[in-house]
Write a protein that binds this DNA or RNA. Structure first.
Lengths: 155, 155
DNA sequence: CTTGAATAGTTTGATATCGTACTATAATAG
DNA sequence: CTATTATAGTACGATATCAAACTATTCAAG
């Protein structure tokens, strides 16, 4: 039976953990902010500069359509600015606004206690040791993906 | 910075793997079937009998509202039957139909090659060794959850 | 150049998911 | 028995996500 396949159980556990943790984090984010929106803001703060929607979509492993949706929401709240790319008529350039930076900082402050709380409870679960192998699996799946992007850039 | 916290990176990897793997699986499922729908059908085949929507919601760690939505879709395709619970006026009983069982079997057959393909590529990533610690983390988060259910029953 | 393929972004329609609020029924307390 | 509280299911509105189809622009051949 497929469902007894170790790989199946592995992805099952992964899926449940992903959902539970996403819920925990979103529940402490400021009103109206989602994890999807936060990670985009955070990406800009960490790496600076401007990005095209396509580059962001690629960095987060979502489709361009999904990124369009998220960016429109962020733009509506004035957390990012979107303007045409002067050097490519098809493309756009996305940049963080001051307001966006402030919201990102607020998100970080909102997340910190929750992270700490979970870190306490995670004592003895050797989380740190799990990261490298998980990264390996993620890269393996990354490469496996069909079509779409040229090179991923998870940060 | 929070985003450098090992826990943050852990959940980040988990989230990406969850998304990529879900995509891989859904892309090979029969037309119109989603992972959410498949796991419900599979649950019935594996554990048999009838279940209340609330019990299913609890088993899969989703809200009752979410399970209502998925069950309505499955009922529309005649993969499950839903009838009132004779012993509790508030509750309902959900049961798999023959058609549902056949669809579940088809899903299993559709998933098998993909599982095998990924299993090949996953050689050397020691997936099996990751399952116990991940299960531990999942249970830790499970217990951590606020309110809602009484006892979880991941299968 | 002109044509055809590739790329960027959007739109549309679907599903999953949540939180909140609502109805109905059950269980518990007085 | 009645009033309160808890539970089951649903409805609604929002967001994230995808695939597919579409427009516009760029690039690569010929």
């Amino acid at each position: 039976m497929i469902q007894d396949h170790p790989l199946f159980r592995f992805f099952n556990e992964i899926g449940i953990i992903a959902q539970l943790s996403q819920r925990l984090f979103e529940n402490v984010l400021p009103q109206g902010m989602t994890l999807a929106q936060f990670v985009v803001l955070n990406h800009f703060v960490r790496l600076g500069g401007e990005r095209s929607p396509a580059a962001l979509a690629n960095a987060f492993q979502v489709t361009r359509a999904t990124m369009t949706s998220t960016l429109q929401r962020l733009e509506g709240k004035e957390f990012v600015e979107i303007r045409p790319d002067p050097s490519d008529g098809r493309a756009k350039r996305v940049a963080l606004t001051e307001k966006g930076r402030e919201m990102r900082d607020l998100c970080i402050r909102s997340l910190a206690p929750e992270i700490e709380r979970i870190a306490e409870k995670a004592q003895g679960h050797a989380i740190d040791a799990l990261i490298p192998p998980l990264t390996g699996v993620r890269q393996m799946l990354d490469v496996d993906r069909p079509a779409q992007p040229k090179g991923s850039a998870h940060s």
